[in-house]
Design a protein around this nucleic acid. Structure first.
Lengths: 221, 221
DNA sequence: TTCTACATTTTTGAATGCAAAATTCTCGAT
DNA sequence: ATCGAGAATTTTGCATTCAAAAATGTAGAA
């Protein structure tokens, strides 16, 4: 198994919440599960620690990182900045074909909204945001976006919404697609920022910060 | 020696250009120099690879990452976004004391400009930009900024400038300080973007991309 | 002389072993 | 029964070791 694959597997385990935030990461257990020895596992944990997904405590092992309210706020703030930048760049560089792809994802998402399928709605939602970032054509930006969004993924794409919030979000997405189609970079940046600000407020209001006993997604194992 | 210290030491070696971009990283040699074995060294290299400073080639070892023109452009683009965001946030949160600190760094920088001391000028310059990022009060943002700027540091803070360019840069910095003192977030964001766009053009024009035989900062060893 | 096939050496990537540190357990005193 | 000191166990972090892969060197053929 390649180094990057090991990192990916553990990242997935953390993002799925299989090892809940704050929980110790069982080295021995993961070694057996991934069929690797401790050396490559520990290399992967150090990388994930640099990404902010894992917390290393010298001589006391590693834990799945826990997000405080402040962390969550900071991450959303940066995410806003990154998406706004991506939106501007995307408007300069996106191809017609790519716009069609985003439009298709949008239509999909709206359908799932009408059907009341939150899970599928979120899937389409993500596809749109990621589509915009990809269209920005900046791999450095895409990389940072991936790493930042990974850390707030569960909060962002799991939080339940009131019908009102949901309706607002969909309207915002209409405006997002519209701005993209008009290639209105400044407008798109503004909408994306507002959209994420609203999402952040929802998440914080829902008390999603991962402090202590807030293991929303329990260990599956 | 602690893990983070090892990472820091190697990072410094790379940023100093002691191991020039594209050069093989001599594991054995670094082990002796840092008085550690290969295990912790390799852990550090993987972390630095995730940061983008090191390139890992499976079964062929690691090299100091080389930046193409495109990489440089992408990094500057992201840096613009991060600094613009930092500027906006800083205007909302900066204390009077912090403004005074930035103003002091600015005065210093201008003095070094008048004296024609490019090295000291760049030092003050960096202090200003970093001061703004710090004042934004967002550690996530600060972390990303650190990692992105590290990769373009040599290009950004080594490139020589024509007297005209230099004069323009100083004027831009006057405007930066002014906007900060007026706490004009939008204005500051705009100026920072333009400032960095100009710097990027300088750097690219100077052909700083680290392709092949372009080891501007030679091995010191 | 130059090119290629093969053997040798070096280097890489990962498993294991070992000392130090932390955690857990035990047992006696209060 | 509870608390705390000390022993036993576990876990961590790193050095070492080992197999596989790549790089290098050598010799023979064209």
């Amino acid at each position: 198994m390649l180094h990057e694959e090991v990192v990916g597997r553990i990242r997935a385990i953390l993002l799925d919440g299989e090892i809940p935030p704050g929980a110790r990461i069982p080295e021995r257990e993961l070694c057996e599960r991934l069929q690797i020895s401790r050396t490559p596992l520990r290399e992967a944990l150090k990388v994930l620690a640099a990404e902010g997904l894992v917390q290393l405590l010298p001589h006391r092992g590693s834990r799945a990182a826990k997000l405080t309210d402040k962390d969550m706020r900071d991450l959303f703030e940066v995410c806003q900045g990154l998406e706004a930048l991506a939106g501007e760049l995307a408007c300069e560089r996106i191809t017609d074909a790519e716009i069609d792809e985003v439009a298709a994802a949008h239509a999909d998402m709206v359908r799932h909204y009408r059907e009341g399928d939150l899970i599928q709605y979120y899937r389409g939602n993500r596809a749109i945001h990621e589509g915009i970032v990809t269209a920005a054509g900046n791999p450095v930006l895409a990389g940072l976006y991936t790493s930042v969004t990974a850390r707030i993924r569960r909060a962002r794409y799991v939080t339940p919404m009131t019908p009102e919030r949901w309706a607002v979000a969909v309207r915002e997405h209409d405006a997002i697609l519209n701005a993209l189609q008009r290639r209105d970079g400044v407008g798109l940046a503004h909408i994306l920022r507002a959209h994420l600000r609203h999402k952040r407020e929802e998440v914080l209001q829902a008390g999603f910060a991962e402090t202590e006993a807030n293991d929303l997604v329990p260990r599956i194992a």
